[in-house]
Simulated assay, not measured.
Amino acid sequence: MELIRGLHNLREKHRGCVATIGNFDSVHLGHVRVLEQVKAKARELGLPTTVIIFEPQPREFFGGESVPSRLTRFGEKVRLLRAQGIDRVLCLAFNAQLQKMTAAEFVENLLLKGLEVKHFVVGDDFRFGCDRAGDYQMLEAVGKQYGFSVVNTDTFTIAGERVSSTRVRKVLEQNDFDLAERLLGRRYRIAGRVMHGQKLGRQLGVPTANIRMHRFIAPLRGVYAVTMYREEQMLGQGVCNIGMRPTVNGTQPVLEVHLLDFDEDLYGQLLSVEFETFLRKEQKFDGLEQLRKQIFNDIEVAQTYFAQPK
């Protein structure tokens, strides 16, 4: 799969495709349904598939208190799209310039000149251009004028409700990992590289692998029983804390995992953490000794959980 960063990197070879557009945060089963439509039409027309995404996501650009947590980081999203068999991902930088682009300019610069789209698949709530002025009816009219077809996908539901990133986020915030799996088609994971931390876990007798969070705002907070993977190889099971580490006056969110019966240098490696069950909320303790006792208690609870037949 080819990753294209920005309109300015589009070339002649990228013109003529079946495309779709959106945030694709989590690449849930609703997204998969859209991608299946794209791939089917691409096979029919003998054209490559192109998925258009944004970085940052539009609501992250506008900021404010309403910015939702993010389900997948950019790199993980790209890997998930690659796994779906997509030929190209075009990532547009969502900035002030793109924000000001009118719907007509968006169609001309991206769909007509940039990609020469032959078939365009959009979600059931897709809006585009400055002030979200563009909609499906506009795309349909432009398509008839310039010779490309447009289809509006049907709402995809599970358990009577629409599958959306918002719903997945809400389910994860409620720590319902079984329902999240039904919506995603897989267990929920957070991926990232292992970074050097303060080595506090090692001092307490529970060494941890710290996953770099950077600007990633996860939908989870607390302590969990998890399974850790390197690519698709299971490294082990353990206990994960996602939070601010209030006992040591942390200022940035950290994801740290203690693997049970594991002793290997993981620094710099790209790993993913799969969430099995919620253990407890993050809390502030009166000193490191109290924290250490709670961590060992968490480990015992996790060991009991993993020992149960699934």
Rank of each mutant, 00 (worst) to 15 (best):
E55H: 09
K281N: 10
T251M: 14
R127Y: 15
V257M: 02
T20W: 02
E108P: 13
G114L: 02
F120G: 06
G160C: 06
T304N: 09
D261G: 04
E282P: 11
L270K: 13
G192Y: 03
K113G: 03
A19R: 06
L266W: 07
C240A: 15
E116G: 12
Y224K: 05
S69M: 02
V78A: 12
V89M: 05
V239G: 07
R11A: 06
G30L: 06
E108M: 08
H28I: 11
D131V: 03
I158E: 03
Q283P: 00
R202V: 10
A225V: 02
T304K: 10
A159D: 15
H258C: 06
K100E: 15
K144F: 08
G222R: 08
N9P: 07
G129A: 15
V27T: 08
Q57R: 12
I158Q: 00
I190W: 02
F216K: 00
Q233T: 11
M138D: 10
H31V: 00
T277M: 04
N210S: 03
G205W: 09
N297S: 09
E289H: 14
T157N: 05
F128S: 00
L110G: 06
K77W: 03
F306D: 12
R292F: 04
R202Y: 15
E173C: 12
G250D: 12
G197R: 11
E161I: 01
A141Q: 14
N249I: 12
K77M: 10
I217S: 12
R187C: 10
R280L: 05
M195W: 01
R182C: 12
A159L: 12
G287C: 13
V239P: 01
A191E: 08
I295E: 00
M1H: 05
V38T: 12
H196E: 07
K284M: 09
T157G: 00
V38C: 10
K39C: 12
G205F: 07
G85Y: 08
N210Y: 02
R202W: 08
A40M: 14
V27H: 09
D124G: 07
D286Q: 09
E274Y: 04
E232S: 09
V78F: 12
P246N: 06
E2F: 03
T157K: 14
G134E: 13
Y188D: 07
R70I: 03
P207I: 08
